[in-house]
């Protein structure tokens, strides 16, 4: 110990999860598999990609920065309405309107975030709800712009990259949303494995300590919030483009709640939680609604209670425990 040479040779860093690298390809392989094997399901898959992106943006807040919000739909809706209103006024390039949706949501996120992130816990939760309610009412009243309760109808978007028209079968929307999701995923993955991402986890675990090592807590949380807002706005814009329609639902409390439930089902703080939670939620919803069209939410509630009680960490938590058990077996 004492006779350490001046320049020590560092041990080769153990690549964590090396053997599991192949697993990272699964979600994307499944997505392409759906396209190849289940023609006709493109619109449903597109809807899932949008929601996965939306849930991924929420994961950045809930799972990494420790900011629990019940108003995330406010940002999704801002993106959707921005893209929709631009298209209604003749500016309908998909990528440009998606970027505008991101920008608008980031601005709204900056505005609300700079107020609500001065608080924590319950106060933060209430303020996040209130911010989405405000936006909902704004959209409800501004019928000239948003169509109010009837939604923003008759909008259409130009071809993606000037080449691919949105087709009736939804193939363009499928590949377009999948491509955007993939890029956004790479971005989030890079972000959370950067010193910035570590600092978010540090803040979540002990904000005083992060402050004492020189990290400006409020600015970091606000930055994370604005980034998540931009991604939620991007998801909203994709939704408007894929469905050529924007309804008030995109700003609703119900949607804020649903996306949180999707994330919890899948497992927050895991990156892939959104990829598991969204399909699980949507399939369960579909199945339960077929069983009992009036009381299907009862089943959804029971599933949620069961998951929270018996599978903390959601599907990803179950997966991790299984992997750990397999590894223990492998080397006795």
């Amino acid at each position: 110990m004492n006779q350490q040479p001046a320049s020590i040779t560092l041990p080769v860093p153990v690549r964590r999860r090396t053997a599991l690298t192949a697993l990272h390809a699964i979600p994307w392989a499944v997505a392409l598999g759906v396209y190849a094997l289940f023609p006709g399901y493109e619109p449903l898959a597109t809807q899932m990609f949008v929601m996965i992106l939306f849930a991924l943006s929420l994961d950045l807040l809930v799972g990494y920065a420790g900011i629990v919000t019940l108003g995330h739909a406010g940002l999704f809706g801002t993106g959707a309405y921005t893209a929709g209103i631009l298209a209604a006024h003749g500016f309908n390039d998909p990528i440009a309107t998606a970027l505008c949706g991101m920008g608008a949501a980031a601005l709204v996120g900056l505005l609300f975030g700079s107020c609500m992130l001065r608080t924590k816990g319950l106060a933060l939760l209430m303020l996040s709800m209130a911010s989405a309610f405000l936006l909902y009412e704004l959209a409800n009243k501004a019928t000239g712009w948003t169509g109010g309760d009837d939604g923003l109808q008759g909008i259409s978007f130009g071809p993606v990259l000037g080449l691919f028209e949105f087709d009736f079968r939804g193939r363009t929307a499928f590949f377009y949303t999948l491509g955007v999701l993939f890029l956004a995923f790479l971005f989030v993955r890079t972000l959370i494995n950067s010193p910035f991402g570590w600092s978010l986890r540090g803040i979540r675990e002990n904000d005083r300590r992060m402050g004492a090592i020189g990290c400006p807590i409020y600015q970091r949380r606000l930055t994370a919030y604005v980034i998540a807002a931009a991604l939620a706005g991007l998801a909203g814009a994709l939704q408007a483009q894929a469905t050529q329609f924007v309804a008030l639902h995109v700003l609703s409390f119900e949607l804020s709640g649903d996306v949180l439930v999707m994330l919890i089902l899948g497992g927050s703080g895991h990156l892939y939680g959104a990829f598991l939670g969204v399909p699980l939620f949507m399939f369960a919803q579909d199945l339960l609604a077929k069983q009992d069209p009036t009381n299907w939410q009862l089943g959804q509630g029971i599933i949620l209670i069961g998951m929270v009680l018996f599978a903390p960490g959601g599907m990803m938590g179950i997966g991790r425990r299984l992997m750990a058990a397999v590894r223990r077996r492998a080397r006795p």
Binding site: R208, G211, A212, G214, P216, I217
Partner: peptide, 11 residues
């Protein structure tokens, strides 16, 4: 605040 003191050189 703490983070400013840290940045000024207090560990």
């Amino acid at each position: 605040p703490s983070h400013r003191r840290s940045r000024l050189g207090i560990g």
